[in-house]
């Protein structure tokens, strides 16, 4: 009976994994298939011959490395800025009483209600006079503005999960409020910081709409915009497109591997009675 249950559970897990990972497999399969076999071999799971030609082309002959670098800069910049700011905002919302706090929080929620498409024209008009159109900094500013409210809420709820007595104890033990934050609260916030970083990084990494609208010069395009250029004049070059997409998956994968140990919660266990 036990064995049947365990087997059943594994079967479900396996089915789920297969379902979730199949698109990735397909991505890789097409990237590795020589062009001339793409349509002749139909939908076999794996091509009879594989080639790295698509990858070589993307890396050596297309402007992808530039797109890539742009995306890394914009995503990392956005993730870092949003995380720092939302940490401050979340802490203030969680720990301080001040006038207009509730109103401010409601306001943050309201900003999330507008369909983003509505904002593109006004945003363009705002950014153009200050020279932020067609710049990477402009993208970082816009991404930061759009991700900050949610990130602030996320951080706020993480701060709420940390007992106030911990920093009070630290302040009695000789810390200033800032020292208590740095030495006691932030180490316990690492899962929260990791989650926020990860969330914002991925959001910025795959953002298309604003990048498409705000960036025009080839040298500043991000990866998502660049992918569209494969949908070209003479049809779609599937092999190259999939090779580029495969490469684009690598940075988020590295990033999440790096922060995954902080994403695992449970660090606050034992702070209070249990």
């Amino acid at each position: 009976m036990r064995i049947v249950t365990t087997a059943g559970i594994w079967l479900i897990r396996f089915a789920y994994l297969a379902f979730a990972l199949f698109p990735l497999l397909w991505l890789l399969r097409i990237a590795l298939t020589p062009d001339q076999l793409l349509y002749t071999e139909g939908t076999t799971l794996w091509p009879s011959v594989i080639t790295f030609e698509n990858f070589r082309y993307v890396i050596e002959e297309s402007p992808f490395p530039t797109y890539f670098l742009n995306t890394v800069i914009v995503s990392l910049g956005t993730a870092a800025i949003v995380t720092v700011l939302s940490t401050g905002i979340g802490y203030a919302f969680s720990r301080f009483r001040f006038r207009g706090k509730t109103a401010l929080m409601v306001f943050l929620v309201i900003t999330q209600l507008f369909p983003i498409v509505m904002l593109i024209t006004p945003l363009y008009q705002i950014l153009a006079p200050v020279g932020l159109v067609d710049t990477r900094i402009g993208l970082v500013v816009v991404f930061t503005a759009f991700n900050l409210p949610f990130a602030a809420f996320l951080m706020h709820s993480f701060f709420e999960g940390i007992p106030r007595e911990l920093e009070q104890a630290a302040m009695i033990d000789g810390c200033t409020r800032f020292q208590a934050l740095i030495r006691i609260i932030l180490p316990l916030m690492l899962p929260g910081v990791g989650a926020t970083l990860g969330f914002v990084f991925t959001a910025a990494w795959s953002e298309l709409l604003f990048s498409l609208m705000l960036i025009s010069s080839e040298a500043k395009k991000t990866f998502a915009v660049g992918l569209l250029s494969f949908v070209g004049r003479s049809g779609v070059d599937w092999g190259q497109m999939m090779a580029a997409a495969t490469l684009a998956l690598i940075p988020p994968a590295i990033f999440f591997t790096a922060i995954q140990k902080y994403l695992v919660g449970g660090l606050t266990a034992g702070a209070i009675k249990g």
């Binding site: 009070q168 316990l188 660090l267 702070a271 209070i272 009675k273």
Partner: peptide
Amino acid sequence: LPPRARDISMVFQNYALYPH
């Protein structure tokens, strides 16, 4: 005076030990 300048220590109901 802030708590740190009062030369006191406190034991909390939930102990408030630093978990890390």
